[in-house]
Design a binder for these strands. Structure first.
Lengths: 204, 204
DNA sequence: ACCTGAACACCGTTCAAGT
DNA sequence: ACCTGAACACCGTTCAAGT
């Protein structure tokens, strides 16, 4: 005698994301998710291979949302002005992290591959910024420029979330300072190179 | 009848750090640490309040090591030349992360306060870089410049460790590019400011 | 076809009992 | 003083049994 389904994959992912955002990754247990959707833990395994797969689905969901926000930021009023686009993208990125801190951490956490979000989604989320980086730094330096700004933005935000920046001072000021200096630096023509010992490829 | 101690706090911390570096934070269980020092798990609680305290002691130990390496890098042959000092510090930071990836992740992981390394050690580890940032960017911008370079370095390294940078390209090149552009940007005089909407304090 | 209790192998942590 | 087995409250996961 078949039984009607009492929940769905979509409901499970939504419940899991709510728990993640409310109480963090350690609280995202199979038992809590099951309780949230009105079922017992073993039933979840009908819809999801294991906890890692559920975490990955939640990360995919969040990364899709971030990618869409970044696409909107790029297409907004700033479109065409690379500096303004970059400011809008950085603000969007940072706002996402502040609004969903636990989810943001999950997206960039150094977890095993099975837990990490889909690589294709990752590419999609980084594309708007790469396009802006190309407009700013030129084709030859697009990838390096994109990585520089991404590293700074992620580093800054993750230190904020981790409670770094304990030396006082004005964090907003440091954000604006870093962003403006980076924009100026990426738009600049190639600076004088480092001495031999610091060049790539020379690390024995 | 008193029993002679069969282990020590120092031995426990060392064993824990070895397990962390070999198999990552989830493998750092009380049972495994106990087995490594030849004792049963409950005995660890004579020396350590709980697992969080043990993790914190291990993080302190590693952060002390990183701080010392950064101090040596600053005092090395490059001393006096702010640009060369910064290159040496960044290389040291990155080398530490590559040599002890699991430990590096722990130092910067967004964990509850009870797990995080001592704040005083944190200050000590960031001091050499702040001094160099001051020499490069001037007193008025020392803190912001330090935060900018720290954010970039941490962001870059953590993305490397997390398996970001999946778009191909030359990661060494991106590292050298980012570092040199940052050095140029931080040393530069104040660039033209952003439009009103992007200034700090104007975010409603 | 879906859901469940029971079971298994793990955790961290406490504590009375042993030496 | 230190160490231990046993216990407790949790995990994730599997599976036979129920409907």
């Amino acid at each position: 005698v078949p039984t009607p389904a009492r929940t769905s994959l979509a409901e499970i992912v939504a419940a899991g994301r709510a728990i993640l955002e409310a109480d963090g990754l350690p609280a995202l247990t199979m038992q809590r998710v099951a309780a949230a959707v009105g079922v017992r833990a073993p039933s979840l395994y009908k819809r999801v291979r294991d906890r890692a797969a559920l975490v990955r689905l939640i990360a995919d969901d969040a990364l899709r949302e971030l990618a869409e926000a970044l696409e909107r930021a790029s297409a907004g009023g700033a479109a065409g002005d690379a500096r303004a686009e970059l400011r809008a993208q950085a603000a969007t990125f940072r706002a996402f992290a502040h609004t969903h801190p636990a989810t943001y951490r999950l997206l960039f956490a150094p977890l095993p591959e099975a837990w990490r979000p889909d690589a294709e989604l990752n590419r999609r989320a980084s594309e708007p910024l790469l396009r802006t980086a190309e407009a700013l730094a030129g084709r030859a330096h697009a990838l390096e420029a994109g990585r520089t700004i991404t590293a700074w933005a992620h580093g800054f935000v993750s230190m904020e979330l981790a409670g770094g920046f304990r030396l006082g001072g004005d964090v907003e000021r440091a954000y604006a300072f870093g962003l403006e200096r980076l924009i100026a630096a990426l738009a600049a023509p190639t600076p004088t190179g480092p001495p031999e010992g610091a060049r790539p490829g020379s690390r024995s």
